[in-house]
Design a protein around this nucleic acid. Structure first.
Length: 897
RNA sequence: GGGCGGGUAGCUCAGUUGGGAGAGCGCCGGCCUUACAAGCCGGAGGUCACAGGUUCAAGCCCUGUUCCGCCUACCA
């Protein structure tokens, strides 16, 4: 077997390994900092360094890879910047878990040693997801791979922090933040997942300091009462009379606390009296501030009651809730308990219930930054696609709150702030200060907190390109062309990159944001380990091949609709890869000794099939380009699927078989080899396959490269080949119209065969009658095609005339088709078939008739439309009449028989 | 509470400015036709969630209803 021939089956595994290694070795993914070519750049949404490839990554990166390969083939200087994210809490959790197995914890190791361990872990396992992305075919410029904890990126982080601090956009202070008692750190508002919880509303009586009764408050969290410093009433609430200056005794603690008046209190909720715990509730904190109340923390950072909780000290907060309720009951102060549904915050990393917690943290003042980011979208400097997300974006940005950026963990960018032990001065600087600028003191203690991981990823589009240095990469590739990401990190990441990019680069970080949907399981449920419904991309790749997988993801990537994935669906697209492979295998059988450069110079006399496939290809190339430019990956993929399977394979390859096999279609006395017809056909076949491969490459890189490699006349990787542009010169309206006719007539004959159960081995005679001379001419000229594809013995083309005997009938356009069923005709079956057909037409005629008898329609609809409908009625009527005639004849024949 | 998306064939979904309801899979029937049975040929199957409205004309535009999903929110 020649090296040009393909094996019977395609072996994805072997080919994928081989070609990926080749691409890497040849440096085909490399971007040029300096180039004449137009730049196209994407920064990868950096996966967590702890991550393993899941469906979300696979989908996200497939789309990016399609864009990158597409642009590369269009001649752009493409940079796809890869890297990973240090994922502070997640990574720390992973390493801590490892330590726990050794019976150690990070505190026994100490900070420095612990961080060292994390780096070790990263060296060992951190590259995993990068390897997995390579299995996916990702064409990232791996030489530029970045990590958010790299020296360069760390410098960018420090620079940004210092500048924002100096600009007054970073501040430090005591506020209520979201605290995860398990991770032992503050979290931003975004990092809290709210879930509805079936809890209770507890009514507790606080007795007056003097006198009876007291006030009943309602709360969902009785344990926080231990830290209450007031009870608040709405000043307009007449029920409570004059409470001014009254005080109540806090039960269990026997602390006397004031009753205060505040309009915040909702009179209609509960009893209209609100207990105030400034240290454990954000609103209470606000009210406490306005009324100068003390804040008493009763829950510690570990989620246990502290020394302020009196006899409850040491209890877990939920344990304490029960204990408090018991104690209240014992004192007769628990008035009632009502079931109550409310939402409870959970840590997005470990699901632990969040504790609103008063502590000293660092914040970014985001309002001023957000304004610019809002504007960028308003002015169109950044396009969000699909547009429906724009509204969500504005909604969030307009209501944005300050961003808590400090985390009480060890793995991350340590905040570059130092406190002078001697005078208390705070120093924020790029490098550790030698001495206190205020008192010259030498004892400077660095802030122990690290920054939110998203703080560093917010800088990703420019930090990865070398900022704060003015690098050539930044000059060439910033702003990036497009960001491809899921909506789940629109706020976490996209919005913050916009703010930081605009603030520090004075330019948007990307021109387009393409927001893709989520990959779900076959039932539409979110894939999650706990549900056990995850499909592992690596398993899929192993089972079906990367190309089948990628094509599936692309084909289902309709904008704004989640992808429901199942193995069945991927298997379906594996069939497509197989189809392409076999079409190529067939083609190469006939092209092994073909020299396109020699033949290409003087091809002439294209056949109808040739003209048609080239016309279709040009049209397909146009559609694919348009759809990709609009990020309509599914439409691009489906266009190609349809073309390859149903045009290239079903019709074109079938039509040229006689030429390739030398079974006729040649002039009298001509032999196959060397005939111009044969060579021209081979050239067009070669050309069609060549173009098709290039159109498909961005979607299915491996199999296209493998076939490309075997295709004569190709040099080098298909990655460097040109993406086919629309070739207007190839548009051939006439050829397409002729083919529509031929395909239609063939279809009608096949339909008769199928309906009448005529086996393919039985060749039939057919007659087509048409009153139109150009139709007859076309059919006459290309009768071979119909004979071949409808498996006929002979085809006669005539003017309308006598109806031949013993025939089944069908209509296409103005043509009547008679298929001779001499000896096998089943009159009954034919009657049924015709009845069915006529019924269908009658139904359509009803609709059309109603329209045309409507005077308003005739008067008000555009003339064009009216004309169209009239023509349609004529066509349908003609068709029905003809079929009816035939039905009558068939009935006669049936009666005679 | 607010916002968004969706309801089209048995399943998963397309349907661009309103003007002839589509695909893939599945199903039924016929074929081992020399690229492919992971295939070829043919076929059946839909009151476009429901109710109104605008229009000569609505899957598409408007209003309401309903069901599903998601995001978001401080009523203790």
């Amino acid at each position: 077997m020649s090296s040009h021939l393909l094996n019977k089956g395609y072996d994805p595994k072997e080919a994928e390994r081989r070609w990926y290694a080749y691409w890497e070795k040849e440096g085909l993914f490399a971007a040029a900092d300096v180039s004449d070519k137009e730049p196209f750049s994407i920064v990868i949404p950096p996966p967590n360094v702890t991550g393993v490839l899941h469906m979300g990554h696979a989908h996200n990166n497939t789309l990016q890879d399609i864009l990158c390969r597409y642009r590369r083939m269009q001649g752009y200087n493409v940079l796809w910047m890869p890297g990973t994210d240090h994922a502070g809490i997640a990574t720390q959790n992973v390493v801590e878990k490892g330590l726990a197995e050794e019976g150690k914890d990070r505190h026994s190791l100490g900070r420095e040693e612990f961080v060292k361990r994390v780096w070790q872990w990263r060296e060992e396992y951190g590259g995993l997801i990068i390897k997995q992305l390579k299995h996916l075919g990702a064409s990232c410029d791996w030489d530029r791979e970045r990590f958010t904890m790299d020296e360069g990126l760390s410098k960018a982080v420090r620079t940004v922090f210092v500048k924002l601090y100096e600009q007054g956009l970073i501040y430090r202070g005591d506020y209520i933040i979201n605290w995860c008692p398990r991770c032992h750190t503050a979290l931003s508002d975004l990092e809290v997942d709210h879930e509805d919880h079936n809890g209770h509303l507890y009514y507790i009586r606080y007795l007056f300091e003097k006198g009876e009764h007291g006030i009943v408050v309602a709360t969902t969290r009785p344990e926080t009462m231990l830290g209450d410093t007031a009870v608040a009433i709405n000043p307009n609430d007449k029920r409570y009379g004059d409470l001014n200056k009254k005080r109540v005794i806090l039960p269990l603690m026997n602390r006397v606390i004031p009753v205060i008046l505040d309009e915040y209190v909702d009179m209609s909720f509960g009893t209209g009296a609100l207990k105030i715990t400034p240290a454990h509730d954000p609103h209470d904190f606000e009210i406490g501030r306005q009324h100068n109340l003390a804040s008493i923390k009763v829950i510690g950072g570990d989620g246990r009651m502290n020394e302020q909780a009196g006899r409850f000290q040491g209890q877990d907060r939920f344990e304490c809730r029960e204990a408090v309720l018991e104690a209240l009951k014992a004192e007769g102060l628990l008035e009632k308990i009502e079931p109550y549904q409310h939402s409870v915050g959970h840590c997005y990393r470990c699901r632990t219930t969040i504790e609103p917690y008063l502590s000293k943290q660092w914040f970014v003042k985001v309002k001023p930054l957000a304004e610019k980011a809002i504007n960028a979208v308003k002015t169109g400097a950044v396009r969000i696609i699909p547009d429906t997300w724009t509204k969500t974006y504005f909604e969030w940005m307009n209501n944005i709150k300050d961003w808590c950026i400090s985390r009480q963990i060890w793995w991350g960018h340590r905040i570059p702030a130092w406190t002078c032990e001697e005078c208390g001065e705070m120093i924020v600087a790029m490098e550790p200060p030698k001495a206190c600028p205020s008192c010259k003191g030498k004892t400077l203690v660095q802030e122990t907190d690290v920054l939110d991981t998203w703080f560093s990823s917010a800088l990703w589009p420019f930090s990865t390109m070398g900022w704060p240095d003015e690098t050539q990469a930044l000059k060439t590739f910033y702003p990036t062309s497009v960001l491809v990401t899921g909506f789940d990190i629109l706020f976490f990441w996209v919005a913050r990159m916009m703010m930081m990019g605009l603030h520090f680069m004075n330019e948007v970080p990307f021109k387009d944001v393409y927001i893709h949907a989520l990959v779900r399981d076959a039932e539409g449920k979110k894939m999650s380990k706990s549900k056990g419904n995850v499909i592992d991309p690596l398993y899929v790749i192993d089972e079906f091949g990367t190309d089948a997988f990628r094509f599936t993801l692309a084909a289902f990537a309709a904008q704004g609709r989640d992808i429901k994935l199942s193995e069945d669906r991927i298997e379906g697209y594996r069939h497509f890869i197989n189809k392409l492979w076999n079409a190529a295998r067939f083609s190469l059988m006939h092209l092994s000794d073909f020299r396109p450069d020699e033949t290409g110079r003087d091809i002439k006399g294209l056949s109808l099939a040739d003209r048609w496939i080239m016309s279709r290809l040009s049209s397909v190339a146009g559609t694919v380009k348009t759809r990709l430019d609009e990020y309509k990956f599914n439409e691009a993929a489906n266009t190609l699927y349809q073309f390859v399977w149903h045009e290239l394979c079903d019709w074109y390859l079938e039509m040229i078989k006689p030429v390739l096999y030398g079974n006729g279609a040649l002039s009298e006395g001509e032999t196959k080899a060397g005939s111009s017809r044969y060579e021209t056909t081979r050239f067009i076949l070669w050309s069609a396959l060549n173009k098709t491969l290039r159109l498909l490459h961005p979607f299915i890189p491996f199999v296209t490269e493998e076939i490309w490699d075997k295709l004569p006349g190709t040099r080098g990787s298909i990655m460097n080949a040109e993406f086919p542009a629309v070739d207007k010169g190839r548009y051939d309206v006439e050829a397409e119209a002729s083919m529509d006719l031929l395909m239609g007539i063939t279809g009608r004959i096949r339909n008769i065969r199928g309906e009448m159960n005529v086996p393919p081995s039985l060749q039939l005679e057919a007659i087509v009658q048409s009153a139109e001379s150009d139709v007859r001419e076309t059919l006459d000229e290309h009768r071979d095609i119909i004979i071949n594809l409808a498996k006929l013995e002979a085809l006669e083309i005539t003017l309308p005339g006598e109806r031949p005997a013993s025939c089944a009938t069908s209509i296409f356009g103005n043509s009547t088709i008679f298929v001779s069923l001499k000896g096998i005709v089943d009159f009954k079956a034919e009657q049924v078939r015709l009845d069915k057909e006529i019924a269908k037409i009658s139904k359509e005629l009803d609709v059309v008739g109603r329209k045309l008898s409507n005077e308003d329609f005739l008067a008000k609809a555009p003339q064009e439309v009216v004309k169209k409908v009239r023509e349609k009625r004529e066509r349908l009527e003609e068709k029905r009449n003809k079929l009816q005639e035939n039905l009558v004849k068939i009935k006669q024949l049936a009666d005679d028989a």
